[in-house]
């Protein structure tokens, strides 16, 4: 079983913010946004908003959702489900694990 890719230290991602991991690291079509919820947990979604070109890693993370920095579409951190217009498509989620203060990403694996 894969151990995942070590992509960041937990402390690199402030509470309520995100960090984009380049696709050259993740091997995915899009960059992946690591998003740290207000309760401290880390989630991962495809970084590009499904509405227009905006980085969800630059969005506002709070109470289980990330809000797009351009037009405020919100996505559920756990499963990427879109919560409101203007986006209508869900964001793709990826599995994340935190071990000893290090963040490991499993690109393409469901959380």
């Amino acid at each position: 079983m894969s151990l995942g890719i070590r992509v960041a230290a937990l402390d690199d991602i402030p509470i309520g913010e995100g960090l984009a991991v380049d696709r050259s690291v993740t091997g995915t079509d899009d960059d992946i946004a690591l998003l740290r919820d207000t309760d401290g947990t880390v989630w991962a979604l495809d970084d590009t908003c499904t509405h227009e070109t905006a980085s969800l890693a630059e969005g506002w993370v709070e109470d289980g959702c990330v809000e797009c920095p351009l037009h405020t579409s919100r996505f559920c951190l756990k499963d990427g489900a879109v919560q409101g217009l203007p986006a209508t498509e869900d964001a793709r989620p990826h599995r994340v694990e935190v071990r000893d203060g290090e963040v490991f990403l499993f690109p393409g694996e469901a959380p």
């Binding site: 630059e58 506002w60 809000e67 920095p69 351009l70 405020t72």
Partner: peptide, 11 residues
């Protein structure tokens, strides 16, 4: 109001 700093307005 913010120019290229939506986080300020969201806050």
């Amino acid at each position: 109001a913010a120019v290229d700093d939506s986080a300020a307005v969201r806050a």
